[in-house]
Computed example of a mutant assay.
Amino acid sequence: MSEIVLLASAACGTNVNCPSVFRLASGDFAVVGVEASPELQGQLPEGSGVGDGERLVIVPKDLLVDAGWMIPDS
């Protein structure tokens, strides 16, 4: 079994610049999305933040649903 398993990927014409969700061998998840740290960091709820070595990314809702995540509509 591969250490990284693709769970879902947005439809795109290339193998790059496609939002994707992966399951790692550790059971954790990795995501590819559009970096949004500069735009959204100041809007995060109090007590939330983006630390050194972290990036805030936007991942399409449909992609997470396709990966099997239960996401509320509201």
Rank of each mutant, 00 (worst) to 15 (best):
Q41G: 15
E54S: 06
C18A: 11
S37N: 05
V31E: 08
V16W: 10
E35P: 07
E39D: 15
G47V: 05
V59T: 13
G49R: 03
P38G: 10
D73V: 01
M70F: 03
V5Q: 07
R23D: 11
E54V: 01
Q41W: 07
D62F: 07
G68C: 05
M70Y: 02
G27P: 11
T14L: 10
A67Q: 08
L56N: 02
A10W: 05
A8I: 03
P38Y: 05
L40E: 12
G33N: 04
D73T: 01
D28E: 15
R55S: 04
A36F: 01
G13E: 12
S74E: 15
V5P: 02
S48I: 01
W69H: 10
A25K: 12
A67M: 07
A30W: 05
P60T: 09
A30I: 04
A25T: 06
P19A: 05
G27K: 09
F22N: 14
R23H: 11
Q43R: 08
A30F: 05
R55D: 00
G33Y: 01
Q43P: 01
P72V: 06
Q41V: 15
G53Y: 02
E39W: 11
P72S: 13
V59N: 10
G42V: 10
N17F: 08
V50W: 02
S26A: 12
A36N: 02
S2Q: 08
V50F: 01
F29I: 12
E35V: 08
A67T: 03
L40A: 15
G13T: 12
V31H: 05
R23N: 12
S37P: 04
Q41C: 14
R55I: 00
G51V: 00
G13P: 10
W69K: 06
A10I: 13
D52P: 00
C18G: 04
W69Q: 09
G47D: 05
G42L: 06
S20W: 03
D66N: 06
S48N: 10
G47C: 08
E54M: 06
V59L: 08
V32P: 10
G27V: 12
E46F: 14
V32C: 14
E39H: 13
G33T: 02
S20I: 06
G27D: 12
N15T: 09
I71Q: 01
D62H: 09
K61T: 06
A10L: 12
L63N: 14
G13N: 09
Q43N: 13
I58D: 09
S48G: 02
L64Y: 00
